[in-house]
Design a binder for these strands. Structure first.
Lengths: 237, 237
DNA sequence: TAAAAACATTGATCTAGATCAAGTTAAGCT
DNA sequence: AGCTTAACTTGATCTAGATCAATGTTTTTA
């Protein structure tokens, strides 16, 4: 069940949302789910380029991505952007802000993006009585710690393939990799995030295409030989 | 109050530990602290090179670093090590394992290292009634998400300086940077972690030394011009 | 619907940093 | 203490990927 378009999502409840088994509701009892639902403050749509929050903004809400995608960035003093990561449907923004009470990054919508806003203090209050929620909050923070292993690969091609497989898996949370998908972010953003030039991303993807490992048309990707791609990503050249 | 040597730490309790205000006990009431103390299963010493756990091991315990340091690594199919990060005194290992119930990495002691073992299920049980602990668990997971920003810098020198400042700050959690400290990890590990060759680390450190920004003798570092180093790290060349 | 802007590809050149290699220093071991 | 081994430094060379540049494509906006 793929997430619907951003604009279709405004009336959905947690119980009827396609992402209910991956997002915050996961593992919650029916009762807990109903209470969580009551706690959702806003459902909002951001259009491409809009900023959800800036670094230093006081941390008040989690944002659960319902449809679309955002990037997490900072701008350094020299004016250069630094892409820290991406958030895809079902993923929750805010964990990195808990300890300092301030968001550390800018969150910018990459496409039309629909989100659910959840007040943190209410969530914490609720999780005192709802132990399923308490566990799920930690589990989501945990997931976030291991979600993005691509940056750690030394080999450039490995990094790019691992990134593509990572996005594919995250877009298809239920079962394995999504074979056909659209990258929500630009080559520039991918490059920045992986510490590579945009042109290098382009060339590596082209190379994989020529080898018949995937089909590409701009941001649309089809993984053709998943086992081979996996093998390359884990370092078996 | 610097952390004592690993071997001095076996008898210490949470209440008397120098790290009490940074580690899990932070923000806990006296009552909560006493209950937490009762929950600590083991205090153990690992010597250099010893493995705390392997990837895939069933997640049962958090490990709080009391003295020393460890690295978090994986070995890929080609036999290459990949350094994911480091844990320094007061830091807690285990958050990345909550969602899958398995540790994703090997944890290897870099020096003589003393740790406190805390059973996860007991912690969760306890945090149902101790809301300070519940918050502190999330806060520590949160901290972990933002602790290691060095890898995201594009410029090589920036990455290395940011790394040194990062270690310095983490070794001196209370107040700002530690001016004089020993790196617990090898140049090789630093390089691997930052995606650079060991020789490059050596050369960049040598370069900073020649500029008079720091004093180095093997793993011992003294930060001589902190503002200048900070400026370089944030991209003002 | 056309024009503009943003994004992506492809090629040519150049340089930062990897790799290779040798020598030095420090740490662990018997 | 002296031997062995691991870690670090320094230099020379080479290459992967950055940078520069031009063109093509798609999306956005007027």
């Amino acid at each position: 069940m793929p997430p619907k378009k951003a604009t279709d999502q405004l009336q959905t409840t947690c119980a009827t949302c396609a992402l209910t088994q991956f997002c915050l509701p996961m593992g919650l009892t029916e009762r807990e789910l109903k209470d969580l639902e009551a706690l959702v403050k806003h459902r909002r749509i951001f259009s491409r380029g809009e900023i959800l929050h800036q670094p230093g903004d006081f941390f008040q809400n989690f944002y659960a991505i319902r449809a679309g995608a955002v990037k997490s960035v900072t701008i350094n003093t020299a004016g250069n952007e630094q892409v820290f990561g991406f958030y895809l449907p079902g993923e929750v923004i805010g964990f990195e802000a808990i300890s300092t009470q301030k968001y550390p990054h800018s969150i910018i919508a990459l496409t039309e993006t629909s989100i659910c806003e959840l007040p943190f203090t209410h969530l914490m209050q609720m999780s005192k009585t709802h132990s399923g929620l308490q566990h799920q909050l930690l589990a989501l923070a945990s997931q976030r710690l291991t979600i993005d292993t691509c940056i750690h690969f030394t080999d450039t091609q490995q990094r790019v393939i691992a990134f593509l497989l990572n996005v594919s898996a995250r877009l298809n949370r239920s079962a394995g990799l999504k074979r056909i998908f659209d990258l929500p972010m630009s080559r520039h953003d991918i490059g920045n995030h992986l510490g590579l030039a945009m042109e290098t991303i382009s060339r590596i993807i082209h190379h994989l295409k020529r080898q018949g490992l995937l089909a590409v048309h701009h941001r649309s990707i089809e993984l053709l030989k998943i086992p081979a791609l996996k093998a390359l990503a884990t370092g078996n050249k």
